[in-house]
Amino acid sequence: MGLTYKKILVAVDGSKEAEWAFKKAVEITKRNNASLIVAHIIDTRNFATIEAYDRTIAERSEAYATELMKKYKDDAVAAGVENVIIEVDYGSPKIKVPKDLAKKHEVDLIICGATGLNAVERFFIGSVSEHITRYATCDVLVVRTKKEEE
Rank of each mutant, 00 (worst) to 15 (best):
I41N: 01
N83K: 15
E67W: 07
Y72D: 03
A136R: 03
F124C: 02
K146A: 11
E106V: 10
D75F: 03
V140Y: 05
G2S: 15
K147M: 12
E17Q: 09
A52W: 13
K6A: 10
A39S: 12
E149V: 11
K73I: 05
R122G: 08
E62S: 12
T49Q: 14
E150G: 08
D139V: 12
T56W: 11
I110Q: 02
T66D: 14
E121G: 01
I57M: 15
G113R: 01
V77H: 01
L9P: 00
L109E: 06
D75C: 03
D75Y: 04
N118E: 06
C138K: 04
L117N: 03
K94M: 05
D13K: 02
T44P: 07
L36C: 08
T4V: 15
I95S: 07
I37K: 02
Y72K: 11
I50G: 06
G113Y: 01
I42R: 12
R134W: 10
R122K: 12
L9D: 01
A25L: 06
K146Q: 12
T115L: 09
T66L: 14
E27C: 03
L68D: 07
V97I: 15
A76E: 00
I57Q: 13
W20T: 02
I86S: 10
P93D: 05
D108C: 09
Y53S: 15
V26P: 00
C112L: 13
I125Y: 09
V84K: 05
K24I: 07
A39K: 01
E19H: 03
A25W: 01
A34Y: 07
K147H: 00
E17T: 04
T137C: 07
V10R: 00
I50K: 07
D100K: 11
I37R: 02
T56M: 13
N33W: 06
L36H: 03
V97D: 02
E27M: 06
S15R: 01
M1K: 07
D43I: 11
R31H: 09
A25V: 05
K71Y: 06
K7M: 10
H40F: 11
G116T: 02
G2T: 15
D43L: 13
V97Q: 01
S35F: 10
E150A: 14
W20P: 00
K71F: 07
K103D: 14
A65M: 10
T145Q: 15
F123H: 03
E82A: 13
A79N: 00
